[in-house]
């Protein structure tokens, strides 16, 4: 019985930790993707889930994109489409590229410590 309780508590702890970790790493993943070229929201979310297997809920990403724009880490441009429904393309800024470099070295340092 105690073992079952321990397993449930542990799995809950791990699931909370995993969720926090995924959320925390999202700005880094966004920046790493938009270094390549501008991406629109839907495409960006699918790319993140596909490349990094994050299973992030689509809605979670939009507040993060808005905050990154507020911080001038990302810029965006609405691009008209033949469908009449424009796409909002996100691209990195100079500050965003700098921050991406710093984030990358922080992550590398962390992983080195783990080794």
């Amino acid at each position: 019985m105690y073992f079952l309780y321990f397993c449930i508590m542990e799995s809950k702890y791990i699931s909370n930790w995993t969720s926090q970790l995924k959320k925390g790493v999202l700005p880094y993943l966004v920046l790493s993707i938009v270094q390549e070229r501008p991406f629109y929201g839907y495409e960006l979310i699918k790319k993140i889930n596909q490349d990094f297997h994050t299973d992030v809920t689509d809605g979670t990403l939009y507040p993060i994109l808005i905050r990154m724009y507020d911080e001038k880490i990302l810029k965006y441009e609405w691009v008209e489409q033949s469908s009449g429904i424009p796409r909002k393309y996100y691209a990195t800024t100079e500050k965003g590229t700098e921050i991406f470099g710093i984030m990358r070295s922080v992550i590398q340092n962390l992983l080195n410590i783990e080794k």
Binding site: Y40, G41, Y42, K46, D58, Y62, S83, I85, P86, K88
Partner: peptide
Amino acid sequence: EIVMEINSHIYEGMES
């Protein structure tokens, strides 16, 4: 901005 972005997201999702 937010409504347009959600609308675009839904449209792209439907198309994909």
